[in-house]
């Protein structure tokens, strides 16, 4: 293993003040983040929030307008080549060659990274991916789940130190998603750092740390528990009859920032606990309803962050 300059610090990604605009529109604003080596770092946020742009700046595909930082100890502005050799980037859209077979795609990647025995490396990876028997199938003909496995295989083939995965599980079935996450955890256990963007809350909860980004601003980061605790959101879970009516009545009341149905229950949340409790007081004794003060879910926190950031930044 080549020792990167900052390996001693145990930080894989360390960037400060990254800013990027396209055509006058600021897509990423003053973004700073640190990712520890060997962790799985979840990158969450609505569509168009700047997740992909940030990831591309980290691996040298985009040059930040301002800001600086290191990736695996290499300067993201000056050492793009060194970063590329050590980082596996899995794009949001399938970007391997559709008209090349599974084996040919993997051999291509292996050769590009200077692997001595490209055929052997590809064969080994096909076996690991469970793609034996499909090696001569064209990549374009694979199902979504297999494409995603192949893409992960292609970006782990050159043995990177850092994986950047941009919404890797979008449109993939739950079983394939679970397998995928098991693999990511196995890779992290080997010492690989993984930065993964996602929309799924269950995936966020599988990360060691998460960051929430909206409208180009990093709004919250830390472990899932940290993020929930720091949100200062009070939530009541209501179960019972006629929840739809209750939802309609509560919406817009002072202190009630969010009303969201979750199956047979309703989540009522607000930042100002006193105002929230004052507003819901008249409904708490309504027959047939059961009220319980509860922890907000990660989704509650994110939706609240998103609503708030929309007010602030748009």
């Amino acid at each position: 293993m080549t020792a990167a300059p900052a390996s001693a610090s145990g930080v894989a990604i360390d960037v400060k003040g990254l800013t990027k605009s396209f055509g006058g529109r600021e897509v990423v604003h003053d973004l700073s983040m640190q990712v520890k080596r060997g962790t799985i770092y979840g990158f969450l946020g609505p569509n168009g929030s700047g997740k992909t742009t940030t990831i591309r700046m980290l691996c040298g595909l985009l040059t930040p307008d301002s800001g600086e930082g290191t990736c695996l100890g290499y300067d993201i502005r000056r050492d793009a080549d060194k970063i590329k050799r050590r980082v596996g980037y899995m794009t949001q859209r399938f970007s391997l060659y559709q008209d090349l077979s599974v084996r040919e795609n993997l051999e291509f990647v292996a050769r590009l990274y200077g692997t001595r025995d490209a055929r052997g490396a590809a064969r080994e990876m096909i076996k690991r991916l469970g793609l034996s028997g499909r090696e001569e199938q064209l990549a374009g003909e694979l199902s979504g789940g297999w494409k995603q496995r192949l893409a992960l295989g292609a970006c782990t083939l050159p043995n990177p130190k850092l994986l950047l995965l941009d919404e890797p599980t979008a449109g993939v079935d739950p079983k394939a998603r679970r397998d995928f996450w098991n693999e990511i955890h196995a890779l992290a256990a080997e010492g690989l750092t993984v930065l993964v963007s996602t929309h799924y809350m269950d995936e966020a909860e599988r990360c060691h740390e998460i960051a929430y980004i909206a409208y180009g601003h990093l709004l919250a980061h830390g472990t899932v528990d940290d993020v929930i605790a720091k949100s200062a959101l009070s939530t009541y879970t209501v179960t019972g009859d006629n929840l739809n009516e209750l939802a309609a009545e509560l919406t817009g009341k002072p202190g009630v920032d969010m009303v969201a149905p979750f199956g047979t229950s309703l989540h009522v949340s607000g930042r100002d606990r006193e105002a929230l409790e004052a507003s819901i007081a008249p409904y708490r004794d309504r027959p047939g309803l059961h009220w319980q003060h509860s922890e907000p879910s990660l989704e509650d926190v994110f939706i609240e962050l998103m609503t708030r950031s929309k007010d602030n930044f748009q």
Partner: peptide, 12 residues
């Protein structure tokens, strides 16, 4: 075809 993004992220 979107393959450029992958290609550019590799050391070529």
């Amino acid at each position: 075809r979107g393959t450029m993004e992958s290609l550019l992220s590799m050391p070529i």
